[in-house]
Nucleic acid binder design. Sequence first.
DNA 1: TTGTTAATGAAAACTATTTTCATTAACAGA
DNA 2: TCTGTTAATGAAAATAGTTTTCATTAACAA
Lengths: 149, 149
Amino acid sequence: MRNDNWWCGRFRGCGYKVTVPREAILEVLSLTDKHLSAEDIYLAVHKKYPAIGLTTVYRTLDILVSIGLIYKFDFGDGRARFELAEDSKGKKHHHHLICTKCGRIIDYTDFIDDEFELLQLVEKGLSKKYNFKISGHLIQFCGLCDKCR
Amino acid sequence: MRNDNWWCGRFRGCGYKVTVPREAILEVLSLTDKHLSAEDIYLAVHKKYPAIGLTTVYRTLDILVSIGLIYKFDFGDGRARFELAEDSKGKKHHHHLICTKCGRIIDYTDFIDDEFELLQLVEKGLSKKYNFKISGHLIQFCGLCDKCR
DNA sequence: TTGTTAATGAAAACTATTTTCATTAACAGA
DNA sequence: TCTGTTAATGAAAATAGTTTTCATTAACAA
């Protein structure tokens, strides 16, 4: 049993093995503040471990999303993008502001408390009315950034 | 100049011609309350006008999104889905509740006023702070529906 | 009615993602 | 530490949604 990172417990607890590719992928994700695509991650991982294939990156990302360690987003550019879930490491909960022209993404934390309060209210109301078990939300704004407007 | 539907003005005003395929596609979209994919629309249109091709459907949808007559969504099933923008016809502004297991989508209008109030506040704050010209927002909740939970 | 030009459809191309399958590595138990 | 089981892996092929190409057709201004 190898060197224990903070996420190893969660990983093994879900019945998954801790492997070199998985460690490498999580390392890439935890060292960036960008919203990486599967290929971005593949290229980054590839520098240190050229043997790791793109297929494994996709498979690992699927697992990470399913156990809640990362989030998957669609910002409208035809590829999925990923980021570490905020509760895992020192990350703050945030939402996104997307420039529809250049694709720039801004993570904002302003008004998060006000948003959270409303989300609580709405989640409660919706889960009662529709008998849904709500597990997450997505809030984002789009428009033109300062350079593109 | 053909028969004028409500959207013809907007269409011609943007420099686009009014064509049979475009009318057919808009008709399909205005007669449903579902969230259709490009292929769904193609199949529906195909019944009445078998000559209309999938390519044209994609092209028309692009235009409709760009002039704001329809919205494009990604509900995570690997294909884009479309619906008429609410201001166009008698539609109400709503947000979505998505079942992550069976893919069911519920349009909800509950709390829309509270949400709207917050959105106003956040949009104002964000556009000032980041100098963004905000043109839209996306709010959705995901979880398990009554049948899947 | 006619000319200009955008719109169209079929087929091919593209691209992100998934599947297949033979090989390798993680790790529980000895 | 060694070993067997089984999940994880990588390469290549397959898939599927969407976009591009290009020759033809239809919209509509004059």
